[in-house]
């Protein structure tokens, strides 16, 4: 049975290594500040006690006031899961650092989020639209997009 890694424990470990990164936690989730996402990702993957080597999914949700990035992580060795979230405030020119250099699996998923949600990923080697064509007006999965 995949066990949910305690958000509290993850938040404590993140805070120890990167002071000020974790802002909030719940039973299974931990919220971090968007500017620390790359460092946090590296820590989560490389810390032996956390060992989140597998990036299940990267999602973005438009909550109107802010966008929430959701990273579903999995430790194959420990059979444990963790949800890392990060809130990005604002609606224009959003950006967050890519986790491509930590988990290559983020490649296509981050491109999809840029295409459909309009969150730009810095440091991604190929940040182009994926489902829609270049020049498509707007980002369709946003709540204010009226097709």
């Amino acid at each position: 049975m995949t066990r949910a890694h305690s958000g509290e424990d993850a938040a404590r470990r993140i805070d120890e290594a990167i002071p000020g990164a974790a802002v909030e936690y719940s039973q299974t989730e931990v919220w971090i500040l968007p500017q620390y996402i790359q460092q946090t990702a590296r820590l989560l993957k490389e810390d032996g006690a956390l060992d989140f080597s597998f990036l299940n999914a990267v999602s973005a949700v438009d909550y109107v006031e802010y966008f929430e990035m959701v990273y579903h992580l999995l430790s194959l060795r420990r059979n444990a899961s963790l949800v890392v979230k990060s809130r990005i405030y604002g609606r224009d020119d959003l950006s967050i650092h890519s986790v491509y250099d930590v988990w290559k699996g983020a490649d296509l998923q981050e491109r999809e989020i840029w295409d459909l949600m309009g969150i730009h990923f810095e440091g991604h080697p190929n940040m182009k639209r994926i489902m829609l064509w270049e020049g498509f007006p707007g980002h369709p999965l946003r709540k204010d997009f009226l097709g």
Partner: peptide, 11 residues
Amino acid sequence: VFGYLHRGSEK
């Protein structure tokens, strides 16, 4: 190159 069958299911 993707997207030829994109129907916006999530939307």
